[in-house]
Amino acid sequence: MNTNDALPSIRVVLADDHDLVRSGIKALLTMIAGVQVIAEARHGQELVTLVESLKPDVVMTDISMPGMDGIAAIAEIHSRQPEVRLLVLSMYDTVDFVKRAVANGACGYLMKDAPPFELEQALRSVMATGSYFSPAIAQRLLQPSEPTVDDELTHRQVEILRLIAQGRASKEIAFELGLSPKTVDVHRARIMERLRLNDIASLTRYAVRKGLIKP
């Protein structure tokens, strides 16, 4: 009997906003016995929709994506389908990134520069034990960290901060989130007050440091 036939099938939905990166990861995943990439997403909202309809075993997602980011998508998927394993595949290894991902429902965290064999190790682990953290990430989780952005701001404030840091004007943000420009301005003032930051440049640097937008 072929030992590969005994391996359980793992259905994966893959999310990354860079087509080339996503194609490379997919190529590596398809080389793993029993693993099938059943769909790909370029942003968080597309990922949520695909997972809702396809009900995969595992989601592998980047964090920084346009529109709904990976953290928001993870939270949405976890609330709707808690049985889906959510594995982050990221270039960021700071404690803040990892803890935000886990707090929102991720059960594993893998670096994009990990050796190819670790992809299989991570998938098998999340299916068998429900979690996977590379040794380097596990070590970082033991370190003390500053409060995460979710500790400091409300969900709505995080949304608005991310859009501000992307250079969006109040009217654009208001239109996208279904708010009035005045409400957006009030939120911005409260964000600045809560974070003790006085200008847009400082807000942008904070957003980059917390992983809300890419550097």
Rank of each mutant, 00 (worst) to 15 (best):
A72V: 11
R42F: 08
A114V: 11
L50A: 10
E46Y: 09
S79G: 04
A122V: 01
A75I: 10
H43T: 00
G34S: 09
E120W: 04
E118I: 12
T94Y: 14
L20N: 05
S90K: 04
Y92W: 11
L47P: 03
G24R: 10
M65I: 10
I63K: 04
V58L: 08
E46A: 12
L47D: 07
H43W: 09
I32W: 03
E83D: 14
R85F: 05
G67V: 11
D69C: 00
K99S: 13
V51N: 08
A41Y: 06
V35G: 05
V84Y: 06
E52L: 10
P66R: 08
S79R: 15
P115T: 05
A72R: 13
V88L: 01
Q121H: 13
M68K: 07
G34H: 06
I38C: 06
K99F: 07
R85N: 14
A101Q: 01
P66S: 10
V21M: 12
F117W: 02
A33V: 07
Q121I: 12
E52G: 12
M91F: 14
A39K: 14
L47K: 06
H18A: 13
H18K: 12
D19K: 14
Q36G: 02
G70M: 13
M65A: 11
M60I: 15
F97T: 08
L123A: 05
K26G: 00
A33G: 09
S23W: 04
L29I: 13
A41N: 09
T61H: 00
S64H: 04
F97M: 14
A41W: 08
V37G: 05
V84F: 08
D113F: 09
I71A: 02
R85W: 06
G105H: 03
D57A: 10
K26Q: 15
G108Y: 08
V98H: 00
V84E: 13
S79M: 11
A39C: 07
